[in-house]
Design a protein around this nucleic acid. Structure first.
Lengths: 189, 189
DNA sequence: ATGATTTTTTGACTATTGTCAACGTTTTTC
DNA sequence: GAAAAACGTTGACAATAGTCAAAAAATCAT
């Protein structure tokens, strides 16, 4: 089984040899180049992506060409244009690989297969879901209660990797502010 | 079984007589008065609430006394101060009944009981979770890409019940804007 | 019903953040 | 390694939204 999958299941589910092979067969390896688009806005997100190495960005584009980053997915985490994946509707967001990245992809059908064939997978998935939901709740909180400076500080505290690893244009639109505002926040302490 | 539970399970899981009784026993009825606080900020949210009638509000309070509404839960939906409920940590948010309301409460332990004893409950719960997550993603989108006027229009389109049924002070802090700004949006078309 | 409380609206002013433009720097790409 | 592209910073100005205050309207409790 792929080491990233071993790690994902470690301490949660013990799999038989047969089950390991089933799981391994469901997750298909994929390499993505820097800036490669994995899901184009308007198309349907057909896969969940497990990021083995690199970083994915889920982002929105406005009519005027400006972009807003909805989520960032780092090594060890899973994600996709979620509303599109679940509802099977054209995605309003695009999915992009920020650097060169190594991924494992899981199709909707294979996700179902795992629900049916791997006892414990649905529980594991459900718990990951709950944590993702909690993250999004906290993001909403920061957006409705804090100004730009406070949101930046919180991001620096909770996710320094985002600020360290990513270009500030992307950090800015993740925070929902302009890059100029972010630049000013960084300089004025 | 309580009619609200019948409705919740309808078309999803067929329960035996015994299972119906188990489910019914896990959900405890509770009436809440107008403005009653069900979960106080700082305490742990020990229950999920199914709103039979009325409306719950999950909200944050700042040091300066200002409030921000994180979520609103109407008839037929379930919710609570979710991060606190799942992580079993003191809640940063409070839960309040906006009008007189009828609720069914499910404790963390009873939720687990249902996971273990009712086949299909976890799938049903997981799907509800996914929809709640999608809602929160769309909320984030509106917060990072739109100004106050656009957010108001979207809310009017997607959740007119919120604007119709709730005082505008609460609509305003749900949108993340001041009540004065909301008042001006409404008058200037 | 009526007095009290809360909610909503409006105005004047302020603060925060966004936009546009220019310039220097870093990073890609061939 | 050189040209091109992308990125980051700064300044001037504009626009959006917040704050404070007061009055009008609606709602609640007895």
């Amino acid at each position: 089984m792929h080491p990233a999958l071993k790690k994902l299941f470690a301490g949660k589910i013990i799999l038989t040899q047969e089950q390991e092979e089933l799981v391994n067969g469901c997750f298909k390896p994929l390499s993505a180049r820097r800036n490669e688009i994995l899901v184009q806005k308007g198309s349907i997100a057909r896969h969940l992506y497990l990021v083995v190495k690199g970083c994915l960005r889920i982002f929105l584009t406005n009519e005027d060409g400006s972009e807003a980053t909805r989520f960032l997915i780092f090594d060890g985490s899973m994600g996709t244009a979620f509303p599109s994946f679940i509802l099977k509707k054209p995605s309003v967001a695009s999915v992009q690989s920020l650097g060169p990245s190594e991924l494992l992809t899981l199709s909707y059908a294979d996700r179902q297969t795992l629900f049916n064939k791997i006892p414990g997978w649905e529980t594991m998935y459900r718990q990951a879901m709950e944590l993702a939901y909690i993250e999004s709740i906290q993001r909403i909180e920061s957006l409705i209660t804090m100004d730009a400076r406070a949101r930046y500080k919180i991001l620096l505290r909770d996710h320094p990797e985002i600020i360290q690893r990513l270009p500030s244009r992307i950090v800015a639109d993740y925070l929902g502010i302009s890059q100029e505002t972010l630049s000013r926040l960084k300089s004025k302490k």
